[in-house]
Amino acid sequence: SISSRVKSKRIQLGLNQAELAQKVGTTQQSIEQLENGKTKRPRFLPELASALGVSVDWLLN
């Protein structure tokens, strides 16, 4: 799922939720909701993929 991929990649990069949120241009709460499965397809998906160094396709599939 996107939530597990985001969380595992974030941890692999040594980032906390607030640091990832800053790179993406969103809030820590938005990252938390995404990782908890409350958000399925965030509006900041391209920025998120870029910050994590992955493709949008990788996040979604």
Rank of each mutant, 00 (worst) to 15 (best):
S1R: 09
S1W: 10
S1N: 12
S1A: 11
I2G: 03
I2E: 03
I2A: 04
S3L: 04
S3P: 08
S4I: 12
S4K: 11
S4F: 12
R5N: 07
R5V: 06
R5D: 03
R5M: 08
V6M: 06
V6Y: 02
V6C: 08
K7C: 08
K7W: 07
S8R: 10
S8P: 03
S8T: 12
S8L: 14
K9C: 10
K9Q: 08
K9Y: 05
K9A: 10
K9P: 02
R10C: 03
R10P: 02
R10A: 01
I11D: 07
Q12I: 08
L13S: 05
G14Y: 04
L15V: 05
N16V: 05
N16D: 11
N16Y: 04
Q17P: 09
A18K: 12
A18R: 12
A18N: 10
E19T: 08
E19L: 06
L20E: 01
L20V: 04
L20I: 04
L20M: 03
L20K: 01
A21Y: 01
A21L: 00
Q22A: 15
Q22I: 12
K23F: 10
K23I: 14
G25H: 07
G25P: 08
T26L: 08
T26C: 14
T27N: 09
T27Q: 05
T27E: 05
Q28K: 13
Q29N: 11
Q29T: 11
S30I: 12
S30L: 13
I31C: 02
I31Q: 00
I31D: 02
I31G: 00
E32N: 10
E32G: 06
E32L: 09
E32A: 13
Q33F: 13
Q33M: 14
Q33G: 08
L34D: 01
E35L: 03
E35G: 01
E35H: 01
N36M: 12
G37F: 05
K38R: 12
K38S: 13
K38D: 13
K38G: 12
K38Y: 14
T39A: 10
T39D: 13
T39C: 15
T39E: 12
K40H: 15
K40R: 13
K40Q: 13
R41F: 15
R41D: 11
R41H: 13
R41L: 15
P42N: 07
P42Q: 05
P42C: 13
R43P: 15
R43A: 15
F44Q: 04
L45N: 00
L45I: 10
L45P: 02
L45F: 06
P46T: 13
P46D: 12
E47T: 09
E47W: 06
E47C: 08
E47D: 10
E47K: 11
E47L: 10
L48Q: 00
L48S: 00
L48A: 01
L48E: 00
L48M: 05
A49D: 00
A49H: 00
A49F: 01
S50L: 15
S50Q: 14
A51Y: 06
A51N: 04
A51T: 06
L52V: 01
L52A: 00
L52Y: 01
L52Q: 00
G53N: 10
G53A: 06
V54C: 06
V54E: 05
V54K: 01
S55A: 08
S55C: 06
V56S: 06
V56K: 07
D57M: 11
D57R: 11
W58D: 04
W58P: 01
W58M: 03
W58R: 02
W58Q: 03
W58H: 03
L59P: 06
L59N: 00
L59F: 06
L59D: 00
L59Q: 00
L60E: 08
L60W: 08
N61S: 14
N61I: 09
N61G: 15
